[in-house]
Computed example of a mutant assay.
Amino acid sequence: MFLAKIYVTYKPSILDPQGEVIKSALHRLDYTDVNSVMQGKYFEIKLEAKDQRTAAKEIEEFSDELLINVNMETFTYKLSEISSVEE
């Protein structure tokens, strides 16, 4: 069994409106040293696959198909093998 930790963010060329709002709020709270804020989505998905390569392929496929807007967002992930006892 594998655990995928998937991080979704806007592509660098896309304005992150929520990140900008958060940055402005931090500046109003006198955290003026904050340069930028990137807001995103986070998923933890457990999957059973025969090996790590197969799990990675599935993650890449379903992330592109369902979890992200391919025009505006990108993703990275960390994949680790877990025992079924950790459920």
Rank of each mutant, 00 (worst) to 15 (best):
Q39A: 15
P17T: 02
L29F: 15
F43Q: 00
T32R: 11
I45E: 02
D64G: 13
Q18D: 02
I82V: 14
S80L: 08
A25W: 05
A55F: 09
T32H: 05
Y42D: 02
I59D: 08
K23W: 09
T9I: 08
E44N: 05
K46I: 09
I45R: 02
L79I: 04
S36Y: 06
P17D: 09
A25G: 11
A55R: 11
H27R: 09
R28D: 12
R53W: 00
F43A: 02
S84Q: 13
D30H: 10
Y31W: 03
S84P: 00
L29K: 13
L29P: 05
K78D: 08
A25K: 04
L29R: 09
E58C: 02
L47I: 11
D64S: 09
S80P: 00
D33Q: 13
S63T: 15
M72K: 14
A49P: 00
L29N: 10
M1V: 11
D51K: 12
D64A: 06
F62I: 13
T54K: 15
R28K: 15
P17S: 13
Q39M: 11
F43I: 11
T54Y: 11
K78C: 00
V37Q: 00
E86I: 04
F62E: 07
E86K: 14
I82H: 05
L66W: 11
L29G: 08
L67A: 07
T76L: 08
I6L: 06
S83P: 00
E65M: 12
V21F: 03
L47Q: 09
E44V: 07
E86R: 07
I6V: 14
S83M: 05
G40H: 03
D16P: 01
M38Q: 13
V8A: 11
I22L: 12
L66G: 06
T74V: 04
S63D: 12
G40E: 10
L3F: 05
G40Q: 03
V85M: 10
I14T: 03
H27M: 06
M72F: 15
Y31R: 10
T74S: 10
A56W: 01
L15K: 10
E81H: 06
G19Y: 04
M38S: 10
I59G: 05
E86Q: 12
G40A: 02
N69D: 13
S83C: 01
F75Y: 15
Y31M: 06
E61V: 15
S63A: 15
H27K: 12
S13R: 04
Y77H: 01
G40K: 01
L15V: 12
T32C: 05
E81C: 00
T54F: 11
K57W: 04
L67E: 06
F75C: 05
I22M: 07
N35P: 00
S83E: 09
I22E: 02
Y7V: 14
T74Q: 14
D64W: 04
I45W: 02
I22D: 02
K23M: 13
V34S: 08
P12G: 06
Q39V: 15
